[in-house]
């Protein structure tokens, strides 16, 4: 059969592969997926926290970016505070995705540079009873995710009974902040945690977390 399509670009290939990982992880909370290497993205600007340059988790930032376009509003935060829309890092995301930069309550996607910023989750839009899908999705960079040293027990749709998973190097009240976003289903924030190696754990609002 004749095929009549243009081969996808590197970026398009990355977006599709990343989406399939997100899809699998979102459908099966507790599954740890591997985000592909975002090799087409170089020179991600650093940000400064306490006069120290901080490097983004390239897997977490670019997998969030893979879902953005001109129809989406985006914001990001580090060290528990929102980053200025005019900053280099926000301009960098905008230039590559065409997204609109936004304040927290109107953002449809946010990238949180660290688990400490989970304290800001309550500022995000949880949707409404009639349109719960208009809620925000948060990508959060965490140091390490594994199955070998479980710290959390997950339950909810997508999980056969329960599933244990280890999320390491996060602030003590991380789980409290996340569970607070899903106290009023169907309202809620859907969360994707990605570690420094690109290991991905999705926590849709249906997923309840208890500490092991």
């Amino acid at each position: 059969m004749t095929t009549t399509f243009q081969p996808p670009s590197l970026f398009e290939t990355f977006c599709t592969a990343t989406f399939r990982v997100l899809l699998d992880c979102m459908a099966r909370p507790g599954t740890i997926g591997q985000i592909p290497e975002p090799s087409m993205f170089t020179n991600i600007p650093t940000i400064t926290i306490d006069q120290q340059p901080v490097i983004a988790n390239r897997f977490a930032l670019t997998s969030c970016l893979s879902l953005l376009d001109q129809e989406t509003r985006f914001a990001q935060a580090a060290n528990s505070s929102w980053i200025d829309p005019q900053s280099d890092i926000n301009r960098w995301v905008q230039l590559r995705s065409n997204c609109r930069l936004s304040d927290a309550p109107n953002a449809q996607f946010v990238y949180l540079w660290d688990s400490a910023s989970s304290a800001l989750l309550h500022e995000l839009n949880p949707g409404t009873l009639t349109f719960p899908e208009q809620s925000c999705t948060a990508f959060i960079a965490v140091p390490e995710i594994n199955h070998t040293e479980p710290t959390w027990r997950l339950q909810g749709p997508g999980i056969d009974g329960y599933c244990d998973v280890g999320v390491h190097g996060v602030v003590a009240d991380f789980v409290t902040h996340i569970n607070a976003t899903r106290a009023h289903f169907p309202l809620g924030i859907d969360i994707v945690c990605i570690d420094t190696h690109g290991k991905c754990l999705a926590l849709p609002r249906t997923c309840q977390i208890s500490l092991k």
């Binding site: 979102m26 953005l68 719960p132 809620g188 249906t206």
Partner: peptide, 19 residues
């Protein structure tokens, strides 16, 4: 087009989070 795909993808993720 890629942006149309992205929109469908975003809504699929929301659909999964709201079975």
């Amino acid at each position: 087009d890629e942006d149309s795909k992205r929109e469908v993808r975003r809504q699929i993720l929301k659909a999964i989070a709201l079975p």
